[in-house]
Design a protein around this nucleic acid. Sequence first.
DNA 1: ATACACTACTAATACGGTTTAGTAAAACGT
DNA 2: ACGTTTTACTAAACCGTATTAGTAGTGTAT
Lengths: 341, 341
Amino acid sequence: MNQPSQKKRPSMKDVAELAGVSQTTVSFVINNTPDAGIPENTKQRVWAAVKKLGYRPNVLAQSLRMQRSGIIGFISDKIAITPQAGKIFEGAQDVAWAHGKILLLVNTKNNPELKDAGIDMLLARQVEGIIYGTMFHRPVDPPVSLREVPTVLLDCFAEDRSYPSVVPDEIAGGQKATEILINKGHRRIAFINCTDPVPASFYRLEGYRTALRIHNIPYDETLVYESISTPDGGYRGTQALMRLPDPPTAIFCFNDRMAMGAYDALRKLGKRIPNDVAIMGFDNQELIAAYLYPPLSTMELPHLEMGKWAVNHLLRQISGKKDVKPVQHKIECPYIERDST
Amino acid sequence: MNQPSQKKRPSMKDVAELAGVSQTTVSFVINNTPDAGIPENTKQRVWAAVKKLGYRPNVLAQSLRMQRSGIIGFISDKIAITPQAGKIFEGAQDVAWAHGKILLLVNTKNNPELKDAGIDMLLARQVEGIIYGTMFHRPVDPPVSLREVPTVLLDCFAEDRSYPSVVPDEIAGGQKATEILINKGHRRIAFINCTDPVPASFYRLEGYRTALRIHNIPYDETLVYESISTPDGGYRGTQALMRLPDPPTAIFCFNDRMAMGAYDALRKLGKRIPNDVAIMGFDNQELIAAYLYPPLSTMELPHLEMGKWAVNHLLRQISGKKDVKPVQHKIECPYIERDST
DNA sequence: ATACACTACTAATACGGTTTAGTAAAACGT
DNA sequence: ACGTTTTACTAAACCGTATTAGTAGTGTAT
């Protein structure tokens, strides 16, 4: 019933013994090695022994022998632990699995020591490559040890562009969001930006201005309000904007959390969404966007796609297709239409 | 500049050669093997060679030799990809790291084939144990292959209790939530439950009734409303409850999403939270709970703690401390006080 | 009858470590 | 002076697999 010690797992040698062949033959049969010329009869004996013993190849030994671990390291400050970004990991894992690789996740919680220890661990485990991700789009300065192995930056980029990276196309996202509002007939479109000096805030604003320019709408800086990126910030921004002599008929919020605050402010003012004021969010945080009344139209960050691209690119590097130059790949943010626009 | 092929990583043999000693000696030095009697002088030569070559032990080879992979498998349907449950993984990873183990995450997306393939992969990689988690508290029937290795169920349990498992203490949680409302002076306390036949709905209701009984408040079944577990369900429930001849002064919602709907309903009715009606949530979903107006008081699911307990227990099993009987461990849900009660 | 190819395998080595069992030289005890 | 212990190492085996280089035995061609 209860063996004191775990019984040892069977090895190829055990299978070989039971089948009355050599270990080599077992290997040939299991891997279906071409040109090994093993007759059907023998193959069946081997497979029978495999079944009987419940044999399962030891990937550790395989990896050692073949000098290929099949592991891709995934290191990040918070990803996969943070709500919105879990999709990144999912996309990455999907592609990895499809190529017979597995993802080994390390999350560093923004702790530099943990980060270095994590990278060391990954390298010690012979990962074939590393994906270095962050929980929001930003510049990073990756540890030099990453140079030891092919690397892709995800949702971040090196200032000097010395690593390939994949990020959301914030400019296009901001532009598209604004254009959608313009196409619904709005002319007074406000933008509640956040005050953090992050690429997202710069680029989304840039996209917003580009859209206005293209559609010959003059840029009115009183329509751009900056605040902290919380519902509270959105609340205050909306209050201020609606107090303007010529208030906006549409508000593009830096993110869904701020849009949440905008909803509250408009509700308090007795304004209806989208009839009186249209609201556009950003991020598509399911818990917020889908459950607000009315459900929030928003731009989605391409988390899944970024995860996929990163692994695909990494695999390309690993198989050494050509010494691909470090690119910065931008992925479009899709528009999620709901009822607030 | 660009070597066409990755240069091979240095091995112990390379270090040994450079230091002018045998590979055995290198091993002794690096592992600081007791009783090896290596003089300081030699040690320094070895370490110098290690530094110079940038040598790093190959964990694959170590694992193979020592018959210990240092890997714990973490398999789950959605955990670590789903917002609220990322903490589970975090707790688990913390404990694992503290014990020199790493977590290998597989998420199965509720796909049985992926699940089996995932378990096979973990076993093939010689994991020392497996944590089998789910994204919400429920009974499961784990694949038999899990028997091959120590296993702990996380946020779920086997019907026949044949595996150790850790789950939230739903009864105590429901009871505590209700008692908090009682202690604030409420007597008409409603419970908006969800209709899903899950342990959480049964047990939280049970806790609710227990609290009432203890405090001699008669159970009034008109105060228990069942609905789907979304804001919409909470909205409808609240509307219905407030239409009662003797409406509640406090509403305990099955979860924060439903509480979100309750907020909307009360706002529409012109009721103030918590002055007119107190609201208690469950789950502590940061994005909702912390950002509603007023911030929502709620019960937190002990994700972090469950993750920790699971790994701790697993490690105990692995080191074979004693053939611990499969227990079902329940962890308390802490109360998160905000402004809605 | 002999050379040659083909069939159906196996022995041996390597992957990069850990660990056991030595061993040569120096130091020590008597 | 000689045996014994200690010091400072090293050789070899082993973990479980993949792979290369054979090798006996059979069949075929000449």
